[in-house]
Design a protein around this nucleic acid. Sequence first.
DNA 1: TTTT
DNA 2: TTTT
Lengths: 144, 144, 144, 144
Amino acid sequence: MINRVVLIGRLTKDPDLRYTPNGIPVATFTLAVNRTYTNQQGEKEADFINCVTWRKQAENVANYLNKGSLVGVDGRLQTRNYEAQDGRRVYVTEVVAESVQFLEPKNSRTNAPEKDEPLPSDGYGDPFGDSDDPIDVSDDDLPF
Amino acid sequence: MINRVVLIGRLTKDPDLRYTPNGIPVATFTLAVNRTYTNQQGEKEADFINCVTWRKQAENVANYLNKGSLVGVDGRLQTRNYEAQDGRRVYVTEVVAESVQFLEPKNSRTNAPEKDEPLPSDGYGDPFGDSDDPIDVSDDDLPF
Amino acid sequence: MINRVVLIGRLTKDPDLRYTPNGIPVATFTLAVNRTYTNQQGEKEADFINCVTWRKQAENVANYLNKGSLVGVDGRLQTRNYEAQDGRRVYVTEVVAESVQFLEPKNSRTNAPEKDEPLPSDGYGDPFGDSDDPIDVSDDDLPF
Amino acid sequence: MINRVVLIGRLTKDPDLRYTPNGIPVATFTLAVNRTYTNQQGEKEADFINCVTWRKQAENVANYLNKGSLVGVDGRLQTRNYEAQDGRRVYVTEVVAESVQFLEPKNSRTNAPEKDEPLPSDGYGDPFGDSDDPIDVSDDDLPF
DNA sequence: TTTT
DNA sequence: TTTT
């Protein structure tokens, strides 16, 4: 069925690069997408949208983007859920970025090798949290 | 900035119609959007995407759609957060449906007047939950 | 660069299935996409958009769709130009349908074998015209 | 019905600003959208897509963009046709840009007052040609 | 050259 | 908490 998302926005922080147990690169990042309308209080004028990308694209994202980079994303919406430490079920809606277009002159990141840590052996965790909650996602679930 | 979502899917249950304190209709519904690829286990083959729509469109959705209805949605992604009963902050990503296209022969719902209950006076609550958590959204935040 | 089109509309006539010299199936069809606004005269209330699709998708389109079928299309815009019989250059803007979603209960076409004629040996012609103008498109130009 | 186009590309030349007989601004421009795939010959690697925009957006486009400017466009596909000088009917497919996002630091154009000539009194002509063919489009047909 |  |  049709499921299409197109966004232009800026990374709220440096992208996060990890690897599945099988060695497939996964990059996650959050886009701030400014709204066109302004509310009366002038507050909450952006949406913050979590994105995931895989393989070569993931490596490019990690190598060439950083906090503040302007990008275009073409992808699709995905929902998943996982069990948090406290046993609650957490529901996640995120964009799987099939293509990421860099909209600024190349500005290669200074290497941040601490980002290249492997994933926990049983999944890719909560890619947008600070914790490392394992979740039930394996290589079999890779979207492409 | 560009923020565009287009979906085709089926309502997972009847839409929910409420009203803001100022009397503006808000309908919420969840779309099951089947994925094109199939994972090896044959499991989790759909995404479940929460949608909101306002005003006339909200009333049409409530009047003409029900569980299982096939629709096309053109809209944008929105993020919000609100405080749950237990004090945790809950982050929500949903689609604001600017237009909803009905893709099946009209099949007017039998009236379900219990759906037309007003919202709590301080916001439109957690539109996708069963509870009535008030959240800090007022008429000033209406997207159009 | 980002180039994305999503449409819902009805086929203005039966799709046209041809083959490149190398045997790759190409289906073309035109979608009538009704406009949401109505002009004062009530005239010209639809856009008529030419679409192309390739390979397996082309065969499915030819086998399962006909005049009046309702479909969703996810694809991209493409421009090409070719020389007409009278020497003029003709510019074409069309949608390359990467995915076509059938939105109506299967209603398998009665076979129309005269549609399955091969393309002229030097290209796929003007797929939306009645003539068979050869154009400078070869298998090398296939978009996927 | 759903009709959505999102593009990122560069203006192939300065935008063209005109006015309808009723004084409504119309800007036209062509976007070069680079393809992601490369054909074997390395030729024809972009699509050239005609766009129209109206009113305030038209004036902004004319004031702030020029040849080479990078923009994002969110809009819809439109088809029209008009009679050429030689009596042939010309079919046009173009994008009505509902929003145009400037993707480069402001670089205000030097005024090009010769662009601000009014339209012929009976329509907005062939906005992408060099000629001034009148066509049967009046203010009544304005899309918004 | 246009669909329900 | 999920639709055909």
